[in-house]
Amino acid sequence: MRFRNLLLFIFIICWASLMRTSAQQWVVPDDQKGKVAPFMFSPDLQKQGEGIYTKNCVSCHGMPGKDNWVKQLSPPPGDLAMVKAQKQSDGELFYRITTGKAPMPEFRNILSEDERWWVISFLRTFNPKYVQPNPAGKGVFTGKVVKLQMTYDSVQKKVKVFATELTKERTMVASEGIGIMLFVKRYFGNMQLGDPKTTGKQGLVLFDFPTDLPGDKEGKVELICRVNDASGSISSSPVTSTYAIGVPTNKPGLTETRAWWSTRDKAPVWIILAYTISVIVVWSIIISIVISVIGIRKLNRT
């Protein structure tokens, strides 16, 4: 009974939003529609996906099935438990998460491929009719397999990324024409350095590292390079390394100075002195007067 109501509800919302968005077009390339997850969805992964969803998606889409998405946005983000969202293939969802379309952000550089699949696995829990297609096995993959290596050239002061690909003969050769992106790790996420670059004949790209970017105390920064692949035809994993090439940054805490606003133990010395001395002086005079006045009891004879 409840389910039927829910379905009806979903249909109405879906129809209404279709009406509103009929003008909006967001075409997913055909070769992407059929893309499938490389692993089977499991309750564990769905849980992981929920975590990522609540951190990254909930601010616009709301929680699936709760219809608490943000109505003011255009095009409307919609509830992802709705048929409109759920009738899309995994590949379509994956493509949309990856590329984004304003105001929806692209998550290509924010979520790893696995993380994007986890989110989809979570979303599919709201579709009881969903049956996961067979995961794409390694053998099925027809694209390039690319391996990245990152080094820092201290003479040229550049970050070098070297891409090799696996040939049919199972040998590694320099890979030309591969888009590479470089990131530096920051507290809340990875920050892209410069624009994506494409490897040359030697499979090499050189990135400038900003001379004024802060590192840790020793100037260490953690760099991440990865392949910039919108088509999904390249298999590669990001490479992370740490170099001491940032500006050594060891700024003191903001509460080092003695100031009006400091805590009591860091009060400006002159205030402590002025206050304490005045109190001691005035009160010792008061106390001595009280004592001497009480003392007049014994002085009642001339």
Partner: peptide, 13 residues
């Protein structure tokens, strides 16, 4: 200190 801020919506840093 890191000279970096992350957008809450796009998560872009």
């Amino acid at each position: 200190n890191e000279d970096a801020v992350t957008n809450g919506t796009t998560k872009e840093t």
